[in-house]
Each structure stands twice: as C-alpha cells, then as structure tokens.
Design a protein around this nucleic acid. Structure first.
Lengths: 196, 196, 196, 196
DNA sequence: TATGAATGAGTATTCATTCAT
DNA sequence: GATGAATGAATACTCATTCAT
C-alpha cells in the first residue's frame, strides 16, 4: 500500500504536467514544432528528459494537447465577453487588450503555428478545421452587430470587418518581440465608424 | 580556353544558383530554418542534393545570403517609392499592396524569421541589427510627413504611427494562408485622418 | 518481536517471489530475454514494477535463477522416471507426454533460450555447460538400454537415438502455438523397433 | 549528368541491399527481432548505420521484407519437388535434407520467429496468416498420397502425418546449434510404413 | 558540373534501475 | 513491504555534409 496519499501523488502529477506544458508553450511559441527539442522543454521545466515520457507519449502528443487547450480556451474567452458590463466597443477593447497582452500571446502563437506549419500532425489539422476562424467570427457577430446598431462600430459587411480585425490582431500577436506593438486606440480605428 | 565557353559556364552557374535561391526562399518562408531540409530545396529546384554544395557551403550560408538580399531589396523598394508619381497616401497604398502581394511575401517572411528565431546564425543577427525596423521608419518618415502636411495622413506622432503600421502589415503578411487578408482600403484607415 | 509476525512476513515474501517467477517464466518463454520487459512481468504478477527489485537485484539475476531451477527440475524429473512402475517404453511415453504437456513447456522453452541466445549472461552459459544435453542422454541411457534388451526400443547406437529423440522433443516443444503437436504415438515410432 | 552509368549505380545498390539482407537474416535468426540492433546488422554488413536507411525505411520494414521473401521461397521450394525425378519417399528425403541443411536454416528460423513473436508487426502477422502451415500441408499432399499408394508412406490420416512431420522438421531446425541433429534416416521413420 | 552513395553527429524514445515517501 | 516518480544509458532514425565516380 502506498505511503503517499493518492491526492499527494495526483498533486505531484498535476504539478509536473503543468511544469511541462508551461515550458512547452513557451518553447514551442519561440521555436516552432521542428525547432523545439524535448531537451529544451525538460531543461526549461527542470527535469530529466526521461521524465517527459511519463507525462506525454510523444512530442507530437504534447503539441496536440496544447493546441487543443489553446483552441478551447480562446473560444471560451470570447464567449465570456458577453457577460462583461460595458458598451460593445468597450468589450472589443477589452478583447483586443487581452489578446495583445504578453501572457496570452504564446497560446495564439501556438494556434498560428498549428494553422500554418506543413509538418503539423494530422490530428492538429483536424482540430484546426473543427475550429476555423469562421467560428470566431460567428461568435463575435452578435457583439459587433449590437455595436453597429449603437453606432459604435463602422457600417458595412460585418463578417469581413470581424475577420479582418482578427487577422490584424493575430498578425500583431504572432510577430512577437522585435516589433512595436501598436496602441490599442490605433487598432480600434479599424472597427470604429470612420466618420464620427 | 575559349571565352565563349567560360561565359556559357558562368551562365549555367548563375542559372543554377538562381534556381536554388528561388526554391529556398519559398521553402524557408513556409517551413522556417529548422523545418527546411536541404532535400526539400533541391527537390523544389529540380536537382540532386549533392549539387547544392557546389553553390553554397552550408545551409546556414544560404540562409544568410537570402536574408542579406531581402534586407537590401526591401530598403531599396521603399526608397523607390519617392520616385513614383502620385500623392503620399497613394504611395502608401502602393506600398501596402506590394507588401501584401503574394509574390513579395516570402522575402518579408524571411526577414520575420530572421528577426524572431533563436537558432539564427550570428551573422544574421548582425544583419538584422544593422537594418532594424527603425531604419524602415526613418526611410518612410519624409513620405508620411508630406502626407500629414497635405492632410492625407492622421495627425499625431509619426514614428509611432509608421512603426505601428509596419507592424500590422508585417503581421498580416506573416500569417500567410488560412487567414482572411484585410482589404487595403480598411488597413489604410489606420493612417488616414480619423475625422475626415 | 513475535515469531508469528516474522513467519507471516516470510510467507508474504515467498508468495510474492513465487508470483514473480511464475509470471516471469511465462513471459520469458513467450518473448525471450530481450523482448521481456520488467513491466510485463510485474503487470502479469499484479504488482508495481518497483516491487520487483525487492525480490531480485536485476532482470538478469531473475533469468539466471529461473534457468537454474529449470535445469535442476528437468534432471530431477528424468531421475524420477526410474521409480515409476511400467515397462521402459511406457516410461518413455510418460516422459514424452510430460514434455509436450502445456504446463511443462515454459521451463523447456527457457532452457532453449538459455542455450541459444547470444545475449545470455555469462552465468547462464556456465549453467548450460554444466548441464549439457549429454547429461540428459547419460541419465536416460539405463532406461533405454533396458528397453533395448526387452525389444521395446530399436537396435543401434543408443547415444545417437536418445540425443536425436531429445532434439525432436525439444524442437516440438519450442515451436509453441501455431504448430500441430504430433501425437505421442507417432513420435514413439522414432525409438521403437522398426520391424515389429 | 551522372558520370556513373545507371547500371553501375544499380549494381552498387543491389549489392549493398544484398549485403544488408544477408547480414540481417543471420542476425535476426540468431537474436530475434527485439534482440537485433541495427548496429549489429550494419557491423556485420560492414557499413555505417546511416547507410542502412538508404535501403530500408525501418528495422520493421526490413524484417517484413525478409519474412515475405522467406515465405515465397519456401513455398516455391516445395513446389519444385514435383519436378525432381525419383520415388515419393526419395523426394521427401530430399526435402528433409534441404530443410535441415545449414544454409536453409535462417530462412525457416525467420518464419518461426514471425509465427511466434508477439511483437511482430501487423503486416508480418498477415503474411503468416496468408501462408499458414496448412498451405504447406496442402502442397505436399499429392506427393504423400502417391507415396502412400506405392506403399512407401505409412497408412493413416495424411494431413495429420504431414503436419506432424513439418512440426518435427521445423522444431529440429529452429533449435539451431547446441543440439544433435538427428540423422535423416531416423526422421524418415516417422513417415515410412511401420510394418515393412 | 552532376549524381547519389556514404558517414556520423544529433535527437526522439524506451526501459532498467533507484529512491523518496 | 509497496508505490510510482525520477534518472540516464541505450538505441532507432534523420539529415547535413563529403566524396568517388
């Protein structure tokens, strides 16, 4: 019989797994799937490379699980916007700030790499197809429509406007260090009515 | 030895080298430095992998030479803007279209990878430092200043505006396939005066 | 400390050890030394892999101890034949049936692997040399000689006959599942007088 | 254009491939799939381990291709028996000698391992199922039937007799070094009429 | 110049073994 | 005694680079 309580073991297990995923998100975002070596991840997480394989079957599986989480999290964050108080344009501002925020970046970076790499495992491709950009557009449509009705959002085709805005935000975020992050105020000009 | 023959050889040599660089830009842009295998490049260029080493000493050297060329070319293109006829905002539109254009993308992509990868050779880092984004901002400053004076460009800090605009364009370009490319018209809203 | 408790512990100890060896014989016979992983054995024995090392220092030591036991047991079984009642040929028949019997197989299998593998530990090689096939032949010689004298066993060189018979039985046994086990009656033709 | 004629390259290619397969048959037969390391094969074949992968995608693929060849070859050899001159029992003798012959052994060894290992790749299992022992029995049936009619083969159920004989031969062959190979004359007693 | 065979350093993964609890 | 987390040596496989032809 184990001396350690099951919860303790579970805690260690969860902790370790979190260490790995945190390290992995960081490294994958920086180096891509190919450029990331298991040894980089385990060094960053402060453990032996062997231990990695107690928690994930392969590098691929780790990548898939990260992408899955990123996909689900990003959708959930968008859906939470509706519960916030404030006008539509204020909510868009909150979303913009959240996306550009340093801490959120790696997740989007991951999604970007998942979307763009040719070497990405089949399962990731499927995930990406299940959660295409159109889905994000769809989720944001009510918010933007309300904004448009209130005169806070520019007139015109909303699908195009939203997907363009997502593209711009994604792009800015993907660039990472080395580029000047545009002020949120400036980016919002893209969606605000042109003639005030 | 006959002069003609040497010319002939030189021509073949140049041709081959161009085949390789063209293929390499395409593949590097798509797969990154790590993800790109010599065999991918030579397959794309239609030659044996052995032949690659007649033209470049290493994969690294090829990458460096491509980045060097991209850096020089991109600066040159910006400088050529001044010679075009048209109003400043029209020139900015031309630049925007050029950057987003499919054919121009790989070069910028390369620059992006050079700027962001950790594994990039020292020489590339130096190149990037010699041609920082500030340099681009500086080159574009006269054009934007003229636009501002003519009321075609928004008031405010121009350095910030230009570097933000470069960031957005770079981001959109880097995303590549899988994202909706925003209409140029929309992107120009970022630099046009907000109250018309 | 109470004597009873120690007995109890000893009993558990012996039980555990038996569980491991039983599982190990089965798995080794099926997968060979290289193909057998400690985790296979402990899974079969229903315990954690860590516990294995309370009972055996290494996988090698386990294998050696199993081979040692198999060697001793097989010799003992042959020697017990003499105590049985019945004619010589009937005793040979009993031996044949015992060897081909499902339950006896793994032990012989082990011996076979010990005899044939290159990767076998030195100590096993020595064991095998101490108990060569000639030893079995020698032990069976009296029985066969008696049979020959009674006309139940074919004439001719007995050493050759016995070692051939052992070879055939060993071979049939080693094949394992997937092959048709010949009827004992048929196999006995090898040793019975050819002209009845 | 290549300086080497295509035939020369092809020759080198074939030669190397043959070196590898010859070495592999030997090593696999001796150590099994798990026990065989690529480095053993390449060392035996006198080349670097890297070169192995010019000729085979994986260790598994090599094993599969060897088993495939063994299967096809063994069936072909049986079918060739019919064309030989001589009485049925003489042909059985030829077959027996061929199987027990040193040089033929590795191939049968391979088949045995393919038939028995649990770790064998799926494709090998399928091959083995496509060429079950029954197929061999079937191919030998006409020969044995003819022998039975001529009084050279024992009366009784032929399927059982043949499959038993195959089992015995396979077993003897699988045992390999360390066992006394029974004289062919002795083994033939299994199939010859019991009362002469 | 052109080809592809050949090499070996680098990397992912497995698994025997140790050890804290 | 019992468990499973942790380590690292061993091994399959990849790919940049060299070189004989």
């Amino acid at each position: 019989m184990p001396r350690l309580k099951e919860d303790q073991l579970q805690k260690i297990y969860d902790e370790r797994k979190k260490q790995i995923t945190a390290a992995a998100v960081k490294i994958f975002a920086q180096h891509g799937i190919q450029g990331t070596k298991i040894s980089m991840i385990t060094a960053e997480a402060g453990m032996s490379h062997g231990l990695f394989y107690h928690y994930f079957k392969t590098k691929e599986e780790l990548f898939i699980s990260l992408v899955r989480e990123a996909v689900v999290t990003s959708i959930a964050e968008i859906d939470q916007l509706g519960q916030l108080s404030g006008s539509p344009i204020e909510k868009v501002q909150v979303l913009t700030e959240a996306i550009l925020d340093e801490s959120g970046t790696p997740f989007f970076m991951l999604l970007h790499q998942a979307r763009n790499s040719r070497e990405v495992p089949e399962e990731v491709s499927q995930l990406i197809q299940q959660y295409p950009l159109e889905l994000y557009v769809e989720r944001l449509l009510p918010l933007f429509k309300e904004g448009q009705e209130k005169g806070e959002i520019a007139d015109g085709n909303l699908e195009e406007l939203i997907s363009s805005y997502i593209t711009v935000l994604s792009g800015v975020m993907v660039l990472g260090k080395g580029y000047a992050v545009p002020p949120v105020e400036l980016l919002l000009r893209l969606v605000k009515p042109y003639h005030k």
